[in-house]
Each structure stands twice: as C-alpha cells, then as structure tokens.
Nucleic acid binder design. Structure first.
Lengths: 142, 142
DNA sequence: GCTTGAACCTCAAGCGGCCGCAGGGTGTAC
DNA sequence: GTACACCCTGCGGCCGCTTGAGGTTCAAGC
C-alpha cells in the first residue's frame, strides 16, 4: 500500500498532479485509511506510469483517456490506438519542423549581434523588420 | 488610422488578443473615436508586428516586454537583448532534442503495431511497459 | 502514552496566452 | 434613415497543472 507521496516519487509525478488526475477521472478513486488518506496498489502505480509515459510522449490528457480506455478493453481493435499514435507522430513532426526554423532564425540573430548599442542590435532589428517575418501567420509550435 | 479589426488583419492577430495585450500593458492605450472605438497608427502597427514576430519565435510575453523596453532605449547596451535571444535559443534547442527523442519512440511504436487486437498492440504495450520509460522524469517540452 | 513534525487532506484561486460569448453601442455605405 | 458589419465591455473557459491557506493524520522516537 503506497501513500500518495510514495506513488508520486516512484512515478516522478507531483502529489497534486495525482489528485488532479483523480479529479478529472483519469485515475480511479483509491482506497482510504480510516483517517481519510489515500492508499494505492500496484495496479494504480501501473496506470499512473502509463499516463506519465504517454504525457512524456506528448499525448494530451484526452488522447490518454482514449488509450487507457482501449487498454482496459483488450478485445477492441488496435487500429484506434494506432491512429492516435500516428496523429501524435504527425504533430511531433510538425513541431520539429517549426522549431528547426526557429532555431536557424535565432541562431542567425544571435550570431549577427555585434554587441554594441541597442540602436544597432541585430536581434532587435530582426524582430522589428517586418519583411523578415516568417512567411505565414501560424501560431507557434511551442 | 486603423480600426482594431484592420490592425488585426494586417498583423495576423485576433482582435481579442490585441485588447489582451493592451490590458497587460504590452500595447499602449490607443486613441479613441468619440464613440469610444480604438484607432491605431503606424507606430502601433510596428509595435504589434514586433510582438507577433517575437511570439512566432517563441519568446514569452515577459521576454517580449524586456525586448520592447530595450528597443525603446536605443542607447542601452545590446548585451541584454543578446542574452534574451540566446536564452531563447537554448530553450528551442532543448525542445528540439526532446521532440526528436519523442519522434523516434513514436515511430517505433507505430511501426511495430501489427494491426490485431489491443491485447497485443505494441502502442499500448510500449506505454504500459515501465522499463521502456524515457530515462528521466522531465516534463515534456511541448 | 505522548509529542513532534512530515506528510496528508480539501477547497479555491492562479498561471500563460489567449478565445469566445452575451448583450449592447457605433460607423458607414447606400 | 436604415441596414449591417464592426466595435465595446465584462466575464467565463481552455489545458495541465501549481500554489496557497488552513486544518488533520500518521509513524517514529522518547
């Protein structure tokens, strides 16, 4: 029987985050001591590990909810889980492309800065110069 | 004299976002018509373009506030702006590294999925298998 | 058995960076 | 003069947590 603090340590999660997951129904309500403190078992450790791992892979909580649901129903087709992963992969690739563009622009800015006064700072100049804008008006991939 | 809607169009910003920037003091309070509608000039268009461009490069609003302040004082040393940009570059590089790791793991997951039932789905298996966790417990770079 | 102090509890609000809606007023073209 | 697109304020919502206040419980040491 794990306390919430131990569960937190073993999964690299904050205590509050675990309670948050319970609140939004991602983690089940655990057993309690007479005094009302939560106590967890291995099954819950596994579930939380699943969630954390998926979060690290960039899945949204909604996607994780779907994945957990699939995982809870082993008879279902794998296609859905696969689709979620593929969707996620596409997103990651888009973000990567975006970030690479950012890196090159930032690198250029930083390297061209001569270190004088702000009046001729290349960093500020690039930001000011509308013509050098990234071409589209997308949101940032961050 | 631009209406807020035109300013929005010319900078690829939502009207509400411009009002939000004004509210948090990133954009100055503009002039108003007798009826109370905002009217903008070129200077404000430039400032907003600067902000949007910096946002596209992933700078936080706080960083942008500093950059704007530097830009408003052309006599100051450029070093600070340079430092902000370098910080941003480091962050971008960290995210890139993180995302690249995610991509390879997701790619592996997707390639290994055999298309059967969820019981033998690699996607879910990888997420379940604690031993395959990314080594650290960092937050995701997203 | 008693005391300490770390860990737990609930509830609520806050963060960044906006977006969207309701319910109304304005500006301009015909 | 009227239609209708646009503007206004204010507030609540989004995600994925985090922080804080104010109080209770548990386990170890004496």
């Amino acid at each position: 029987m794990l306390t919430i603090g131990n569960l937190a340590k073993r999964t690299g999660t904050k205590v509050q985050t675990i309670r948050y997951y319970e609140q939004i129904g991602l983690m089940p309500e655990p057993g309690r001591t007479d005094g009302g403190q939560r106590r967890y078992r291995e099954a819950e450790l596994d579930r939380l590990s699943f969630v954390r791992h998926a979060r690290q892979l960039g899945f949204s909580l909604e996607a994780i909810r779907e994945l957990l649901d699939l995982s809870d129903h082993p008879g279902k087709s794998c296609a859905e889980a696969d689709a979620i992963a593929r969707r996620q992969l596409r997103q990651v690739e888009q973000r990567l492309a975006r970030l690479e563009a950012l890196r090159s622009e930032l690198t250029r800015m930083v390297h061209e800065c001569s270190g004088g006064q702000t009046a001729d700072c290349r960093v500020l100049e690039v930001l000011r110069d509308h013509a050098e804008c990234l071409t589209d008006h997308d949101e940032i991939g961050a």
